[in-house]
Simulated scan of single mutants.
Amino acid sequence: MYLKELTELDGVSGNERLVREFISEKIKDKVDDMKTDVLGNLIAFKKGTKGKRKIVLAAHMDEVGFMITNIEDDGTLSFAPVGGVETQVMPGKVVRVNGKIFGAIGYKAIHLQEKDQILKPPSIDQLRIYIGAKSKEEASKLVKIGDYVSFTTAYSEENNRAVGKAFDDRAGCSVLMEIAQMNERYEDDLYFAFVVQEEVGLRGSAVVVEQIHPDIAIVIEGTTAGDDPELPEYQWATHLGDGPAITFMHRGYVVNKRVYESIVAVAQKHSIPHQAKRRTAGGTDAARFARTGAGTAAGVVSVPSRYIHSPVSMIDLNDYSNTVLLIRKILEEGEAFAR
């Protein structure tokens, strides 16, 4: 399991290099071939014992974050979100610019806010990043426009729950790494696609499809947990502790029925705890796999993550380990899977 190392790396969309290098170093001796394409996707390959089909396991390396858009006269930094980050979670958070310059996201103190400001989230143009610089000249020696900004949350575990940033989708990356490092070979040719820029439009997966032309793709994700404060149960998407979530539909894609039912059947056959993702908001690389080129039969298995796309997310470690187990059993089914 590589959750700690992966989540503590900075890898905002378009800047996944550190994540890619870490993954590559850990799995290079366990796969038959590995390459990085022009867009930055890392694709590893294990030859199957029969090799009649190509199966892709995919997880995205990128996380939501920010980019610097301006250096102000007072030395503060204006910024824009990269991916879906709500302004409610930004004020007061410690961030890291270019992996080395620490700062804090600042907003007007509550004592100075009007009543209507207190009751609504700030707009992005009301927020600044403070890095300790006293002038534009001083700040310009440290950062520049276009620099990446990441949250800095340290990974921790307590009571079989893990807390950290970027479980969407470093949890999926860790699952793929565990599968890749196992000594088993399966009937199907197996590709591990660690893709880029999912959070800004499912970009990396389209390039993967064009290179591999897979028969089946299974996307391993970190997905929204619904057991949040004040959210009624009928609106829950998933629940921490109930096992990996299996998606039947989400934004932009109705999951291939044959693949969806086959994933569920494998979970039932091996008594693996699982749940349906009951809310259909959000999208994954499965939609891009299905709609690119001639199309790929694609499914989604996810680790539920509470407070997703925020500086601090939470997963259940049993959900994670059962996701690894479910993917293993799917691969062991060989040609029987999704026939």
Rank of each mutant, 00 (worst) to 15 (best):
E233C: 13
K35V: 03
L331E: 06
M67I: 15
E25M: 10
T7A: 01
D285T: 08
R96F: 09
K144N: 14
T36F: 15
M90D: 10
V163S: 08
D29C: 07
T223H: 09
G106F: 08
F337Y: 08
I124G: 11
R203I: 14
L57F: 13
K100Y: 07
A336H: 09
A104H: 01
V301Y: 06
A193Q: 12
A265R: 09
T87Y: 04
D169C: 06
I330L: 10
V38W: 01
S321A: 15
P232H: 02
E199A: 09
E21I: 11
Q235S: 14
M177D: 07
N98F: 01
L331F: 12
L3G: 02
V97D: 03
M177T: 04
D215N: 14
K108G: 10
A217Q: 00
E187F: 06
W236A: 14
A298G: 06
V266S: 01
A294C: 11
I27Q: 03
G40A: 08
L6G: 04
S321L: 03
P81T: 13
A237E: 12
Q235K: 09
M314D: 13
P91N: 13
G132I: 00
V195I: 11
I71L: 05
A206H: 08
M249K: 11
L18H: 12
L142D: 06
R20D: 14
I330E: 07
D73S: 10
T284R: 01
K257N: 03
K257L: 00
F79Y: 04
I105A: 07
K277E: 14
G241R: 09
R185Y: 08
T49K: 09
Y155S: 12
G283N: 11
E178H: 10
V219L: 03
A276R: 07
T7F: 01
I110Y: 05
G84A: 03
S313F: 05
E114H: 00
T87I: 00
L326V: 05
A267T: 13
G283K: 07
M61N: 09
D125R: 10
G84W: 04
S174A: 12
V255K: 02
V219H: 06
M182I: 12
V94C: 09
F102E: 01
G283C: 08
L6W: 04
K28F: 13
V143Y: 06
G222Q: 04
W236R: 11
E114C: 00
